[in-house]
Amino acid sequence: MLAVADLKKSFLSPEGQRVAIVGVGRFALAAGEQLALRGESGSGKTTFLNLIAGILAPDSGRVTIDGGEMTGLSEPKRDRLRAEKLGYIFQTFNLLQGYTVLENVVLGMSFGPRGADRGHAREVLGRVGLGHRLEHFPRQLSTGQQQRVAVARALANRPKLVLADEPTGNLDRKNAHEALALIREVCREHGAALLLVSHDEDVLKEFEVRKDFAEINEALKEPAR
């Protein structure tokens, strides 16, 4: 489902030095698999997810999603592949504040191959318990509800892979547990693989399969860093 090979990314520091952020030799995720990556703040895990999503272009290496090689594509094709195959849940949810709950989800679908399907968007929002909040704006929702909108948006396009970057970082313990359960459950229902990164042990221990990002990210071991 997801295969990463020799993926490298570095940035220029303010001092003008090139600093390696990500250096992953080999990483894979099977279809429908759910995996949690443990990583401290600043360990490069968000950059890793952005590289997988094609939001960032790597210095070298390959990312293949469901048979399509993200890293070999032009930017417009990466955008299309992302819209078609990926769902992304951000730590800060990144909801569009000027749009209603329904519009947030519909808009997320509209860039994909199936296009905007308001009926399906309503269905998914109903599934995450927000069927009665369709016309609300994000600011009118609780933090937990906002997270559920983000989950619905990520899954509405029937993605093959869901990336979740500290998805419970802004939630209290109870809401975090519920949100996590919801993400995992909905991913399972949709047959989507889930790659979650977090530094929170309470989140990580809910996953059967966990990996330490420090172990797979060679860049963390380089002395220059």
């Binding site: 930017e75 955008d79 299309r80 992302r82 990144n94 504040q97 808009l107 997320g108 948006r153």
Partner: peptide, 16 residues
């Protein structure tokens, strides 16, 4: 810019 970045992350192309 944040809204535009979100749209891009959702798959909107630059030309869109």
């Amino acid at each position: 810019q944040r809204d535009l970045a979100i749209l891009r992350a959702l798959g909107a192309r630059r030309r869109t």
